[in-house]
Simulated assay, not measured.
Amino acid sequence: MPFGEQPAYLRVASDLRKKIADGSLPPHARLPSQARIREEYGVSDTVALEARKVLMAEGLVEGRSGSGTYVREVPAPRRIARTGYRTMSECTPFRQEQSDERVRGTWESHSEQEDAAPAIADRLDLAPGERVMRTRYVFRVDGDAAMLSTSWEPLSVTGRTPVMLPEEGPLAGRGVVERMAAIDLVVDNVTEEVGTRPGRAEETAALGGVPGHAVLVVARTFFAGKRAVETADVVVPADRFRIAYHLPVR
Rank of each mutant, 00 (worst) to 15 (best):
M1V: 00
P2I: 09
F3H: 10
G4H: 02
Q6W: 10
Q6V: 09
L10H: 15
V12Y: 07
V12L: 06
A13P: 08
L16K: 09
P26W: 01
P27S: 03
H28Y: 10
P32I: 08
P32S: 11
P32E: 05
S33C: 10
S33K: 13
A35Y: 06
A35P: 04
R36T: 13
R36M: 07
I37M: 07
R38P: 00
E39F: 00
E39Q: 04
E40L: 11
E40I: 03
G42H: 00
S44R: 03
V47R: 01
A48T: 05
V54M: 03
L55Y: 00
A57V: 02
A57F: 00
G59M: 03
V61F: 02
G68K: 08
E73R: 15
V74S: 07
A76C: 01
R78H: 02
R82F: 14
G84K: 12
Y85H: 15
Y85P: 14
R86C: 08
R86Q: 14
P93Q: 01
P93W: 00
Q96Y: 03
Q96K: 11
E97P: 08
Q98C: 06
S99G: 13
V103C: 00
R104D: 01
T106N: 04
T106D: 10
W107C: 09
E108H: 01
S111Q: 01
E112G: 06
Q113D: 02
E114S: 05
D115H: 03
P118I: 03
I120R: 05
D122P: 11
D125C: 11
G129D: 08
G129E: 05
E130M: 10
R134H: 05
R134L: 06
T135P: 02
T135Y: 06
T135N: 09
Y137E: 06
V141N: 15
V141C: 09
D142F: 02
D142E: 14
G143C: 11
D144A: 15
A145N: 13
A146F: 03
M147R: 12
S149H: 09
S149T: 14
T150N: 06
W152P: 02
V157W: 09
P162C: 01
P162F: 00
V163R: 05
M164N: 02
P166N: 04
E167N: 07
E168H: 04
E168N: 07
G173R: 04
V177M: 10
E178V: 02
E178F: 00
R179A: 07
R179P: 00
A182W: 04
A182Y: 03
G195V: 15
T196R: 13
R200D: 15
E203T: 10
A206K: 09
G209Y: 11
V210S: 12
G212F: 09
H213L: 08
A214F: 14
A214W: 04
A214Y: 08
V218S: 15
V218G: 13
F223P: 11
A224E: 13
A224D: 08
G225V: 08
R227I: 10
R227D: 11
R227M: 12
V229P: 15
E230P: 12
A232N: 14
D233T: 02
D233N: 12
V235M: 09
P237D: 11
D239K: 09
A244T: 09
A244N: 07
Y245E: 15
V249A: 05
